[in-house]
Design a protein around this nucleic acid. Structure first.
Lengths: 189, 189
DNA sequence: GGTTAAAATGAGTGGCTACTCATGTTGGAA
DNA sequence: TTCCAACATGAGTAGCCACTCATTTTAACC
């Protein structure tokens, strides 16, 4: 599949649109209008639709990027982070991002569910988290009977929660502490 | 404030609209159209807007009802439930409802945040949960240092999560078990 | 510099939806 | 039964937004 080379101005515009759209959707959520993206990027509406024939396509491109960056981060932590804490560090980072960027949570949910077609990248991220989980379990930082899908469920839930009801940093930390305690905990009394 | 008595047909219609709207919004989320509500209720659009001048008013009425029912449930559990488990039982019930009715989570979040003006009922529900928490802590079922706002944060987060990514019953149970373990857990290793 | 296909432009289209209002209908008090 | 205020009706209005297309501009190869 030889990428059809784009003209210089087209390449520039595509990049601008992508960057601006990420910012706009992060601010206003996925319901922000395509016109606003075009205006802020300094191009005409038609140009946006030339590069991304559908709003859905634009959103998918952004989410794919985001998921890939997160996957990289998880990979880096798995490579040279402390096995006992890496999972928690990553967890915290994702929740922080969700609080800032409306896109993350909206679309992580849409991915696990299925309004957007980003199943591939979501699965990849999932397995990267799986690695972090396995390492944490090996060194006893997380109970061995905990499964990946439960961790991912907690991850999306906390991201959603942080986003939708705007947790302040203190509350966020204390709430995550409870979740982490649950992952770590010994047998119930 | 003497309630101005409504005519018989008006009372009937108001009730029908409220019931139907609850069902429609539960199914399709808050973005369902007012026209659909009118159609399913068997009344004209104008009638809906006569009773609820704004879509927001309609949503608020539904959410208020829902919050009051939940508050009642929490109150009943506080009155004659097992102190050690009542909080968890209530937690589970709310998450189950959220999975079924899109409204619950959407609007519990909107309440803690502030797109809808239902702060009063939300606070009432919050204090009812506070009672359940206090009782659970008294009998040692939940760590004493845990605060109400953390519990509420976890509650909204899990409701959101269950709703947005459609947890199946097994996953839901296992995920909640982790959260409960976190609330119960002794000091970390 | 000339040529051309690729790209950009932006006014326009259609569909959806919250909300209005002139007109028709009806419950209920006298 | 009469009468009217309260109520119901539903076609219509206005605004928003994703998406289109005829026209104009421009990058890039000769």
């Amino acid at each position: 599949m030889p990428e059809p080379r784009l003209r210089a101005d087209a390449r520039r515009n595509r990049a601008r649109i992508l960057a601006v759209a990420a910012a706009v959707f992060a601010e206003k959520g996925a319901s922000a209008s395509t016109e606003e993206v075009a205006a802020r990027a300094g191009v005409a509406i038609g140009t946006v639709f030339r590069h991304f024939p559908t709003k859905k396509d634009l959103l998918q491109a952004i989410v794919k990027d985001l998921l890939e960056r997160l996957t990289e981060e998880a990979g880096a932590l798995a490579a040279d982070g402390d096995p006992a804490t890496s999972l928690f560090v990553f967890f915290r980072r994702m929740v922080e991002q969700a609080a800032a960027k409306k896109t993350v949570a909206d679309l992580l949910a849409a991915g696990t569910g299925a309004e957007l077609e980003v199943t591939g990248p979501v699965l990849t991220l999932g397995s990267a988290v799986g690695t972090l989980l396995a390492r944490a379990q090996e060194c006893g930082a997380v109970r061995p009977e905990i499964r990946l899908d439960e961790v991912l469920a907690l991850l999306t839930a906390t991201c959603q929660g942080a986003l939708r009801s705007g947790w302040d940093p203190g509350l966020q930390e204390r709430t995550l502490a409870i979740v982490f305690a649950g992952l770590r905990a010994g047998p119930p009394a």
